[in-house]
Simulated scan of single mutants.
Amino acid sequence: MAEINWEEPFCGEGNNCFRIGTDAYGKAYIALAGQEETYLTDSREALSTLIRDIKAGKADHLL
């Protein structure tokens, strides 16, 4: 398993906190803060789009 370099947690309104990370191969990961062992993975572009949509309030119900 590749080592994941996690960024600082992003916390939206309330207690919705998540982290995004990348590995040496450029693959991106997203996880709830504090639960990084259980993550989703996709391209960095796809996860960045998800985060932008969450920040814009388009997908807040997913958290």
Rank of each mutant, 00 (worst) to 15 (best):
T22F: 02
T22L: 05
T22M: 05
T22W: 02
T22R: 12
D23L: 01
A24V: 06
A24W: 04
A24R: 06
A24I: 05
A24L: 12
Y25H: 05
G26S: 05
K27R: 07
K27H: 03
K27S: 02
K27C: 00
A28Q: 04
Y29L: 03
Y29R: 03
Y29T: 00
Y29C: 03
Y29K: 01
I30T: 02
I30L: 01
A31E: 00
A31I: 03
A31R: 07
A31F: 11
L32W: 07
A33K: 05
G34M: 01
G34K: 04
G34N: 01
Q35W: 09
Q35D: 04
E36N: 03
E37P: 01
E37T: 09
E37Q: 08
Y39E: 06
Y39W: 13
Y39V: 03
Y39G: 07
L40Y: 13
L40G: 06
L40H: 15
T41W: 11
T41Y: 08
T41H: 11
T41D: 10
T41L: 04
T41F: 07
T41N: 07
D42C: 03
D42V: 01
D42I: 14
S43V: 02
S43Y: 07
R44V: 08
R44A: 15
R44N: 07
R44K: 12
E45P: 02
E45V: 15
E45N: 14
A46H: 05
L47F: 10
S48N: 10
S48L: 05
S48W: 09
T49M: 08
T49I: 12
T49W: 13
T49G: 14
L50Y: 13
L50C: 09
I51R: 08
I51M: 14
I51A: 15
I51N: 04
I51K: 10
I51C: 10
R52K: 12
R52Y: 08
I54F: 14
I54E: 10
I54D: 04
I54Q: 11
I54G: 11
I54S: 11
K55L: 14
K55G: 12
A56G: 11
A56D: 12
A56C: 10
A56F: 12
A56M: 07
A56H: 07
G57E: 13
G57C: 06
G57D: 15
K58E: 15
K58D: 15
A59D: 12
A59E: 13
A59G: 09
